[in-house]
Design a protein around this nucleic acid. Structure first.
Lengths: 349, 349
DNA sequence: CCGTTTTACTAAATCGGTTTATGGTCTGGG
DNA sequence: CCCAGACCATAAACCGATTTAGTAAAACGG
């Protein structure tokens, strides 16, 4: 009942284990006749080399791990990861690699990292002081960071978050919005402070806002999901202080805000403008289509995978320049209603 | 520079490899003093057991594989997989398992299956005669099928595709639509004929249509993506024979149809009704929100993972009853325009 | 015909763990 | 004082492959 091993094939074919191994990995080292016989027997027996045994002796598993900072059961609610995997996947296919999703094992990424049999890691959104990073270079597995601070040890792939955020905020300001709100991404996994990405986007928003001399924005923390975005909207000030423009750090959050606003009887963009971040595909289909900051997610995945594969080959690699972002203006933003119009400041609901 | 092994720890702590192993896996078999010393040394050296070695000797890898019928670079364009993984992920977390994505290795799923070091497989949408299935039970790794024909060897988790499709078609027919079109899912990976899911949905559509005595629908094959759906719309007959109702076998396809229709100057649902399948979350946010057949994707993932884990524990498992589907009526469908109205049959563009 | 390659194959070491079987040391009871 | 049992720790076997070093036989060159 148990699995067919190389020894079974060897004895069935009347040769040594070495010969069987050669048949698959070094066929030219075997005579025609033996080669065919061994291959035939292996086929008949349904032999497949044990992957773990193979990985152990070859010191490579043919797998790269994606270090995910959240639970699997929630992280895919954001299309971002799916997009990223499309990019990673392209290079994995080229190089015959499979992808292992590595979420925290009962809360601990460190533990998960040790368990994972991979040749390299792509790590998402780790803060520079996450303990997982320590484990990573202690174990010495090549790693490429995405959305983190780069370090001499590990190259990082980033986009111009701050620049993108700045343009987004300026867009609202130029449309005449003064009273803004920011939907801030939740803090890093174990830390209380924000992720590098959130920090950079926030810096961009604030830079534009203070440069324009607009009042300090109200800010609410919300996870990257439609529900969280909707919830965040509820937490916004109402009445006279109600923001007319919302800067969300994610598209999902922005969509949530839009939906909650509409449910509350506001029209988007007439009563409230909302701008997202990421430009996931769905942003183009929403009602209204979302104004958002586009970042090249698939390209980011491709680039990170490419760098990782370089590192896995032993070549030294340094962090590339941040990929550029750009504002995609669709229909969730419009000119701010004039302060004197009767509509301004009306109570919600 | 190379990795710290159990032997290094053993010699550094002045004990045997066995003792080190026990320190981690069988701490009660060691004395207090030794235990602490070994653990301390291991910590200092940054020791982590080699996952492949561990997997080899323990005969388990702590990983389950998801057999994906398409390339990674395309499959995540459909939110379906992400949703499913949310479900799988819930149970993986409970049982400390990681998830390996196993797409075809240069075209061959069989090859990919052999390489994957996993304790079990979840397989997506395999036709009953796919050669990959043969490999699966030859190797003897527990497997649960999703969206396939179940077999005595492998339990399958399915939803009531046919019933759902039937309700969807009836919905359009009851709204007065006669001239329908069907956007058919593309055939299985290597085969020329359709996947079980596509076949069942098609059967459902046709059952309702013939029962209603409506004319035979036009059908177009299109992949599960917005672009493919849009493309499919272009292939639909125009003029007098233009369908007023479209049955898409996926939400992504449906969204593509909607977008292409709107681009062509049609109003949805006034000029053309479209119904999707799956009810991925994005369907609720589109413009207009999509009428679609809801299937419980996350639940499907949960159930499949639960069954697989049972099988991995050696318990026998049989295919559960199909999960039920239901029609979610939103705004992409409406009463068919009366045949006599001047608008009917107007040329597109 | 003899030494040298080449060819075809194999025994044994190795990868890095876990596990089984066993051997000492201490303790306590008779 | 002796023996049984409890307690700790270890040597060696094992998991299932790859790979190194080497051997026997055949082919080759002069």
């Amino acid at each position: 009942m148990s699995r067919v091993t190389i020894a079974d094939v060897a004895s069935a074919a009347g040769v040594s284990k070495t010969a069987v191994s050669f048949a698959f990995n070094n066929p030219e080292r075997l005579g025609q006749a033996t080669l065919e016989r061994v291959l035939g027997v292996a086929q008949d027996l349904g032999y497949a080399p044990h992957p773990a045994a193979r990985a152990l002796s070859m010191r490579r598993s043919g797998t790269i791990g994606v270090l995910i900072p959240q639970r699997l059961s929630t992280v895919f609610a954001n299309p971002f990861l799916g997009e990223l995997i499309q990019g990673l996947g392209e290079l994995c296919e080229e190089h015959d690699l499979t992808l292992l999703l590595v979420p925290p094992l009962d809360g601990s990424l460190e533990g998960a990292i040790r368990q994972a049999s991979v040749d390299g890691f792509i790590s998402l959104g780790l803060s520079p002081d996450d303990r997982a990073l320590g484990v990573l270079d202690r174990i010495g597995i090549p790693t490429v960071l995405i959305d983190s601070e780069g370090s001499p040890a590990h190259p990082a792939v980033n986009v111009d978050d701050q620049g993108g955020a700045e343009v987004a905020a300026r867009h609202l300001l130029e449309l005449g919005h003064r009273q803004l709100a920011i939907i801030v991404l939740p803090p890093a996994r174990t830390q209380t402070h924000s992720t590098p990405t959130a920090a950079r986007r926030l810096a961009g928003y604030l830079a534009a806002i203070t440069a324009a001399g607009a009042p300090e924005p109200h800010s609410v923390v919300a996870g990257v999901s439609v529900a969280a975005g909707a919830h965040a909207f509820e937490a916004l000030p109402r009445g006279r202080l109600r923001p007319t423009g919302v800067l969300a750090m994610s598209d999902m959050g922005a969509i949530g805000v839009v939906i909650a606003a509409q449910r509350a009887g506001l029209r988007v963009p007439d009563d409230i403008s909302v701008v997202g971040f990421d430009d996931v595909p769905a942003s183009a289909w929403t009602n209204p289509p979302l104004t958002t900051v586009r970042q090249p997610i698939v390209e980011k995945g491709r680039l990170a995978a490419r760098l990782l594969i370089q590192r896995m080959k032993g070549r030294p690699v340094t962090s590339p320049a941040p990929l550029s972002t750009r504002l995609i203006v669709r229909n969730s933003t419009s000119r701010a209603r004039n302060l004197d119009l009767p509509m301004y400041g009306r109570e919600i609901e």
